[in-house]
């Protein structure tokens, strides 16, 4: 047995000490596989793994499990996202087994945006377990070979397990402790919420380093390039837990509309440069929302290409 927990590319990159670079892709609102494959193509060779979102913002889409499998077929590596909103422990467990069977080796454990944000607001939510317990469930399956009910698993799934962290939600002083708890629960890596408030993030990372958390877990800093001022205003207003400083809005406003996308990318590139140097940051998670075709350019300009092979 090798030393890896799952042997995923992402795990190997991080364990080898490379600065990881992950991307993200939302499955289609339909069964349009061709469109999905086109989006995948933009990311191929640009990132170490691609997060496949799970009914993000509670808008129904092709299942993250199926889309992750399609990505494996394209010779790429998914980070299969799973939310606790839509599945009870039976569905969660069977999807984890199915994910492993389909060649998926990374998984991100999330609570999930509340369904009131989505397009099926009348739905009943599940929340049988929460994201902390999901991390524990999947790592126990992998490391102890046991289901939540303690029954033995015939061939345990091997997944590199991630969790999310939003340093910008309240109360701020507690955020680093919640991160610590996710690591206690078993998280191998963390992908943070989109960072725009760099000052606050620096403070947060200082706390995480001081508490020794970055020695126990890989932290990938979340970066989302702004397409324009409208996107910044929309996110500030409608996306839960976003902290978008006025200075950034001012900066986007300061250039003519046609150049706002470039300004947004420049800000993202400056962030990535800083993250490369920032103590405790093991990589960047690039969430180019419905902007996958820009990823090659951003990766190139960020100087993270070619992606290392381990």
């Amino acid at each position: 047995m090798d030393e890896y927990k799952s042997g995923s590319n992402l795990e190997k990159i991080l364990r080898a000490g490379h600065f990881a670079f992950t991307g993200e892709c939302g499955p289609p609102k339909g069964a349009n596989v061709d469109h999905l494959k086109k989006k995948f193509a933009h990311l191929k060779g640009m990132v170490d793994a691609v997060n496949i979102t799970d009914n993000q913002t509670a808008v129904v889409r092709m299942s993250s499990l199926a889309a992750s499998h399609l990505l494996v077929h394209e010779g790429m590596e998914p980070n299969f996202q799973m939310v606790c909103r839509d599945r009870n422990r039976l569905a969660i467990t069977s999807d984890i087994l199915g994910a492993h069977a389909l060649g998926i080796r990374n998984m991100l454990c999330l609570s999930g945006d509340h369904q009131s944000f989505g397009n099926h607001t009348q739905a009943k939510n599940v929340h049988d377990i929460d994201s902390m317990q999901l991390i524990r469930l999947v790592t126990n399956m992998r490391d102890k070979g046991r289901f939540m009910n303690d029954e033995e698993i015939d061939v345990p799934p091997r997944l590199f397990v991630g969790a999310a962290c939003n340093p910008f939600a309240d109360p701020f002083e507690y955020r680093v402790y919640r991160l610590a708890n996710k690591i206690t629960a078993g998280a191998d890596f963390i992908q943070t919420q989109c960072i725009f408030n760099m000052e606050k993030f620096r403070t947060f990372m200082h706390q995480a380093v001081d508490m020794g958390l970055t020695e126990k877990c890989f932290i990938l800093a979340g970066v989302t390039p702004m397409k324009n001022l409208g996107m910044a205003n929309f996110m500030a207003k409608f996306v839960p837990g976003m902290d978008i400083p006025d200075a950034l809005k001012k900066r986007l406003k300061g250039v003519e509309k046609a150049k706002q996308a470039e300004e947004g990318i420049c800000f993202a590139l400056e962030q990535i440069e800083e993250f490369k140097q920032m103590e405790g940051v093991a990589g960047v998670h690039l969430m180019a929302i419905e902007w996958e075709h820009k990823v090659p350019e951003i990766a190139e300009r960020a100087g993270v290409l070619p992606r290392p092979k381990v």
């Binding site: 994201s131 902390m132 317990q133 939600a169 839960p240």
Partner: peptide, 14 residues
């Protein structure tokens, strides 16, 4: 709203 036993989630604000 999510019956979390380990909160607050990333959407908690002020």
């Amino acid at each position: 709203a999510k019956s979390l036993l380990h909160g607050p989630c990333g959407g908690s604000s002020d």
